[in-house]
Design a protein around this nucleic acid. Sequence first.
DNA 1: GGTGCGATTGCA
DNA 2: GCAATCGCACCA
Length: 189
Amino acid sequence: MSEDRLPLAFYRREALDVARDLLGRLLCRRLPDGTVLRGRLVEVEAYDGPTDRASHAYRGLTRRNAPMFEAGGVAYVYLIYGMHHCVNVVTGDAGHPAAILLRAAESPVAALSASGPGRLTRAFRIDRVLDGVPLTGDVLWVERGQTVADSSVKRTRRIGVGYAGSWARRRYRFLLRDHPSVSGPRNLR
DNA sequence: GGTGCGATTGCA
DNA sequence: GCAATCGCACCA
């Protein structure tokens, strides 16, 4: 337990605000044996609302995306390509599907520096068992860490959502400028 | 009940 | 450039 843990109110805001504010925070994962893994978030992406064509919620509520429709402050974990897990932080009000995909983390512990959503979940041992868990619990949470200045935050279009038409060009990806751990292209607009 | 594919990664 | 690998969304 840490008093540095971000409260529910942090998550129950606009997705883009939460995404921006997640940079520099500490993703924390307690393993079954009690070990706590911590890594600094350096790249995230927002998926916001029922009209976001890149979002899993675009076609409405389904069994998979149900956590996205919950009130902010829970995890949304899914399996992609049959082999990689991706972890999201759900944001906003109940009924408004929105979540932030965690794409990269950095840590002094080499094994916890992970570039890419699939690598991040592998490093932090996050799988679908954690789908829907509250971020106020003792399994998965985010701590205050150190906030980052606007001047070091870069915004680009999201990765791997080219099918989303004009939504693919929205600058919903937030990353630390020039940080070595971010995944994928760094020079997008 | 059958089919197509993905918010990715690693290797040729 | 492309295969891996499977849950599930969607259609019938």
